[in-house]
Write a protein that binds this DNA or RNA. Sequence first.
DNA 1: GAAATAGTGTCTTTGAGACAATATATG
DNA 2: CATATATTGTCTCAAAGACACTATTTC
Lengths: 237, 237
Amino acid sequence: MLVTTSDTDYDPAAFPPFAVTVDLVILTVRPPRLDVLLLQRAEEPFARQWALPGGFVGPDQDLIEAARGKLEQKTGVSVETAHLEQLATFGHPDRDPRMRVVSVAWLALLADPPDPVAGIDALDSAWVDIDGLDRSTLAFDHHLILEAGIERARNRIEYTTLATRFLADEFTIAELRSVYETLWGVTLDPANFHRKVNASQGFVTATGRSVSHGKGRPAKTYAAGPAEYLEPPVRRP
Amino acid sequence: MLVTTSDTDYDPAAFPPFAVTVDLVILTVRPPRLDVLLLQRAEEPFARQWALPGGFVGPDQDLIEAARGKLEQKTGVSVETAHLEQLATFGHPDRDPRMRVVSVAWLALLADPPDPVAGIDALDSAWVDIDGLDRSTLAFDHHLILEAGIERARNRIEYTTLATRFLADEFTIAELRSVYETLWGVTLDPANFHRKVNASQGFVTATGRSVSHGKGRPAKTYAAGPAEYLEPPVRRP
DNA sequence: GAAATAGTGTCTTTGAGACAATATATG
DNA sequence: CATATATTGTCTCAAAGACACTATTTC
């Protein structure tokens, strides 16, 4: 933290100021779509371009509090039911044309969100399908952040139980499977997947109820189990 | 990035300044020790306590450049031969008693480093065994950062070829095994490990040479292969 | 009953681990 | 040769995947 060879290094106040922001990659799964929440900017720079939701960190605000606040403000979803984790920090000197801004990016995973809350300062806000989105048109370096978020989510569901965060409290194995299929862009064998999920201790717990989706045999429903990590993992094909 | 409900949010310069630093978890393996590079602070706050190497990010300096500079300055090792990756960002409002400081932490993995370069501003610097270190005595929130770094390293060697970064250009399978054993605190079956490493495409490539360690059959030597990820992974027991 | 989806059985292949056996050096 | 370490062989078990088959609903 402190040790260097120049005297000025000892005094934090002697250093030029940085602005610190949070940016959020908020993902939800609506098969066959993987959607990210984007806002259309009203102001320069990058006016009218789409961007990730984010904002400045308050002077006495913890980083995760800033992220949590933005998440709840933009989605209307309590962070209790969502997953929020730190992703990475982006701080290239030229990433914001106005001044030096370091952005701490966060990844949020949500189940079945309501329509986004339009801020008075954004032209529009929407859940945007990951496919069919030209990421290079995003404001700032948000294409990098989005890329990192998607990649993180794809990896996380392999070793953790986070796939259930994309679903309601009660869900079927087929719905859980569709989360994997949507994120990974593959199709999985229903039979093998069913067995694997039930074999992974604490991944899901049966509710004892069933639900009918119109056609076919009704599916038993499950709730997220107590486990945080999958053992063995659900490996990506 | 921009959208909120208050007007001041639009102007980055209107926001109170943060200081931004980098802190480094620099690890090396010297079986049976896993060592981290620490500095003993000369100045308040936390004078005489041990801390991770770090420093302020320059006004026009990219984050990774700041980390790279510190790494080379403190270890005398070129970043070419080391691995450096971003770890996480720590920004609790009270983590530095002087002012608001957000620290971007980095993880570095090194092979067989020289003695640390003592800065004129640190009382001492040393490679410290992870075991036998009372992490709670570290300055700032560096116990959290160190914890995150160790955990990251332990996970990385499971799915990536990074274990070879702890070794010289030429190494034996037994030396590679000792990296895993040291980081994971386990003993692995030499026979099974040998086969697994050779079965993992691109993990290591034979040099055609051998080396004798005094007793026993001489071991063939290998160099790091072209692969970055292990397929299949070397799973932690 | 036909169609559709949920869930089970079974077989094959692959990788992990235990451990015996062989290879090649030093003293 | 005794000993130590490296490397290969072999066997067993667990998990993954292909796919046939059964179960239970709607129309």
